[in-house]
């Protein structure tokens, strides 16, 4: 049993957007085009926010924070989004009715809506991830299709899933290795160790959503959010 989590070191993040692009390619995240983008409809599961202060600019990559007590899953009327037993907040597009209640409930704006039909199935897409139709909500799933495949492979080989079998695309792509992914319950894992670090904080800690994405920063990091 695992509890998948992520640690993002803000002091290492250069804001290069490699994670964003890796995520887009991996998860067939649609490019909505300039017109839609201007209307505020960019879909970006991994989104690099800018925090500007007098001293410096800091970047804050924000995937879905995979809350352990997610506000979005409670309000879903049809069980299209729920916290799965391994802590991943699942989004089942085929069940979603598009009421956008989860978007209204998410304090991190991590959920995105397919306002129009942004793409069809075609070449150049990752065949492991379905293309979302119009009218449904989508979001970062911690690349859980990679978990499906890794688990299938391990099972066929008759072994257990080991650390490193399953890593998200953003963590893989980060050139400064600011993103660490793994099992938070595995005491020895890198991600569990970093999550316990005194530099670690979570976004909106006071909301009680208990995100499983941790951020690392020097202590002044606590000041914001």
């Amino acid at each position: 049993m695992a509890l998948w989590g992520m640690v993002i070191d803000l002091d290492r993040c250069t804001g290069c957007q490699a994670c964003v692009m890796a995520c887009k390619a991996e998860n067939n995240v649609p490019a909505v085009g300039p017109k839609e983008a201007a209307r505020g409809r960019i879909i970006s599961w991994m989104h690099v926010l800018r925090e500007e202060s007098e001293e410096r600019t800091r970047f804050l990559p924000r995937p879905c924070l995979q809350c352990d007590d997610p506000p979005c899953t409670k309000v879903c009327p049809v069980y299209a989004t729920y916290r799965n037993p391994e802590g991943i907040v699942a989004q089942i597009h085929a069940r979603c009715i598009g009421c956008r209640f989860c978007m209204a409930a998410c304090p991190y704006n991590a959920k995105y809506f397919n306002w129009l039909r942004y793409q069809k199935e075609g070449p150049g897409q990752n065949p492991d991830v379905s293309v979302r139709p119009k009218g449904v909500v989508e979001k970062c799933t911690f690349c859980h299709h990679r978990l499906q495949k890794a688990r299938e492979r391990a099972r066929a080989e008759g072994r257990d899933l080991v650390a490193g079998d399953y890593v998200t695309a953003c963590a893989e792509a980060c050139p400064t290795r600011a993103i660490t992914f793994g099992d938070l319950l595995d005491e020895g894992s890198e991600v569990a160790r970093l999550a316990r670090s005194p530099r670690a904080f979570r976004l909106g800690e006071e909301l009680g959503t208990r995100p499983k994405v941790f951020y690392l920063a020097e202590m002044e990091g606590h000041r914001r959010v």
């Binding site: 729920y82 037993p85 802590g87 699942a90 492991d128 859980h144 299709h145 499906q148 899933l161």
Partner: peptide, 18 residues
């Protein structure tokens, strides 16, 4: 947090839906 998802025969939606 049950053992559902990791078990061989999962009925977790995420086990098949992507």
């Amino acid at each position: 947090v049950a053992v559902v998802a990791a078990r061989a025969l999962s009925t977790d939606c995420n086990a098949c839906h992507r």
